[in-house]
């Protein structure tokens, strides 16, 4: 652990509650969530479906409004942070626009945010290089594989200067081999760019491999049951997953998930 003792919080949630009114009555999606994420952290949210991990990410992104409690992003409300373009968001599916080329897709948020044409071109080239898609700029999304599409959508989220990256099961729909590679690339990217990443997943190895902190959540009502700090180094080769430390943390995460389940 190389992080300083008291880093400034990038995301801070206090007593966060969110209740959805559905046809079957009220559903408590988030209950008393307290969480701080420091700059440069890689935080994973893990838990069974319905535990509110995606909802929490969406609250951070101002896609949902909490019923009570406070949350700040970069010291601002989520709405203000969104307007200040504080974060990039990557969804489970690539969500690329079929009528735009890969390059056009990456440039789209830049167009909306009013970057100049030259700036757009440079940034698109840079982030496409970062996700190793150079040479595919003129292809359309539907001409690429699922893994490449997902890399393009990550490039799109990186294209503007947001120092937070919010990722909602970005690799959930991909096969294991592609997933491993993208995990590795994501770690390198995080290392290079020093961004703060909040990452939703339901895979224990993925969460342990990627994160500096793992937030374990459980459903009904959606809540945080455990927060595990990872002792793994910043630099992580793939085979770190066979080390005893890794297996130890994975075990703790599994125990945490089980504990949350038994409480039902």
């Amino acid at each position: 652990m190389t992080a300083p003792s008291m880093p400034t919080p990038v995301i801070a949630a206090e007593n966060l509650n969110l209740i959805f009114d559905t046809a079957d009555g009220a559903v408590q999606a988030l209950k008393d969530v307290n969480l701080t994420i420091a700059k440069g952290d890689f935080v994973s949210f893990i838990g069974p479906s319905g535990c509110g991990k995606t909802t929490l990410l969406r609250v951070i992104a101002d896609l949902e409004q909490p019923t009570s409690g406070t949350i700040t992003v970069n010291g601002m409300t989520p709405d203000a942070a969104r307007r200040a373009r504080a974060y990039g968001y990557v969804f489970q599916a690539a969500g690329l626009y079929p009528w735009r080329t890969i390059e056009g897709n990456v440039k789209l948020p830049l167009e909306i945010m009013g970057y100049s044409a030259e700036e757009r071109r440079q940034r698109a080239a840079r982030v496409l290089d970062l996700v190793e898609l150079t040479g595919f700029e003129k292809k359309f999304p539907w001409q690429l594989s699922g893994g490449m599409q997902q890399r393009a959508s990550i490039a799109r989220a990186l294209a503007f200067d947001a120092d937070i990256l919010l990722m909602d099961e970005p690799f959930g729909a991909l096969d294991e081999i592609v997933r491993d590679r993208l995990n590795e690339e994501l770690l390198k990217l995080w290392d290079r760019t020093q961004k703060t990443i909040a990452f939703v997943t339901h895979s224990i190895p993925e969460a342990v491999y990627l994160s500096t902190r793992i937030v374990v959540m459980s459903p009904r009502p959606g809540r945080i049951t455990d927060i595990i700090d990872s002792p793994l180094p910043r630099h992580r080769p793939l085979d770190i997953r066979d080390s005893p430390e890794f297996i130890e943390i994975a075990h703790r995460v599994r125990e945490g998930l089980r504990a949350g389940h038994v409480e039902d």
């Binding site: 992104a61 101002d62 307007r83 373009r85 990039g88 969500g95 626009y97 909306i112």
Partner: peptide, 25 residues
């Protein structure tokens, strides 16, 4: 798709921008 609309929201695109870049195409 809701996801694409959310994406426009995270970029805080205006109504006209979302219309031109997403909904009309």
């Amino acid at each position: 798709e809701p996801m694409q609309r959310d994406l426009m929201h995270t970029w805080s695109a205006s109504w006209a921008q979302a219309l031109i870049h997403l909904r009309l195409p």
